[in-house]
């Protein structure tokens, strides 16, 4: 490597473009997480109810999203929404939709697991002081479940961040896609620039996910004490 190809990073407006892609990646991840966590909480609560058909439907929903790779889920939405449902969403919204539904499925299982692991006597003492079902959820079960599920939730967030790397597959202008464009435009003049661009992207993902996984470990240890 004659030079590290740093000029490719700062040539023209390359760096701003990369930052722009980064922002796209981040907002898609955040928005999908927020929607997915809210939806997942509701689904998780519903899955603890006694209604059998409802539980089966929600279980099937979870299993579908578990078994089908996220890449395939993305393409399913990407092709089927416009062609079958005549719904022409921009690619970034398709991505948010898919990721949010996927997060909701995974999170519903986390919420359900946490809810059923709140000890039975907590439930009973709540009922004994006259709480109704909703109040029991709201004041007794959910707050306790929340602390139980925190590490798993953070781990889910790290997975969402990693999954955003798939955005380029449906032509979203995320950090990787823009990186690819910069590499292609400068490949002739700066063949080594590819290491730098990929390195920057790699480093970005690493920083975000490594901090999150450190946080998850910390929370997990705190929980055990």
């Amino acid at each position: 490597m004659g030079h590290l190809g740093t000029n490719i990073l700062f040539a023209g407006n390359n760096f701003q473009r990369l930052l722009g892609g980064l922002w796209t990646t981040i907002w898609i991840a955040l928005l999908s997480l927020i929607i997915g966590l809210i939806l997942g909480t509701i689904l998780g609560m519903l899955r603890t109810l006694k209604n059998r058909p409802l539980r089966i439907v929600l279980r099937l929903y979870l299993e579908f999203f578990r078994i089908i790779p996220t890449v395939v889920l993305l393409f399913l939405a990407y092709y089927i929404l416009p062609r079958q449902l005549n719904l022409n969403l921009p690619a970034d919204q398709v991505a948010v939709l898919v990721f949010a539904l996927w997060v909701a499925a995974e999170f519903s299982d986390i919420v359900r697991g946490a809810l059923i692991s709140v000890p039975q006597h907590q439930r009973e003492s709540g009922l004994a002081i006259g709480l109704n079902h909703w109040q029991l959820f709201r004041y007794v079960l959910l707050p306790q479940a929340l602390t139980l599920e925190l590490p798993a939730t953070i781990n889910l967030a790290t997975r969402v961040v990693k999954t955003t790397s798939l955005l380029m597959l449906i032509s979203v202008m995320d950090v990787i896609n823009i990186g690819q464009q910069i590499i292609e435009a400068n490949g002739q003049t700066h063949p080594n620039g590819i290491f730098l661009i990929y390195g920057v992207i790699f480093f970005f993902y690493f920083i975000v996910d490594y901090s999150l996984s450190l946080l998850a470990k910390k929370v997990d240890i705190a929980k055990q004490h």
Partner: peptide, 14 residues
């Protein structure tokens, strides 16, 4: 803590 996609890009393109 990094996506497989970037790992593959390194291996295949870089």
């Amino acid at each position: 803590n990094t996506p497989l996609l970037i790992q593959l890009f390194f291996l295949y393109y870089a």
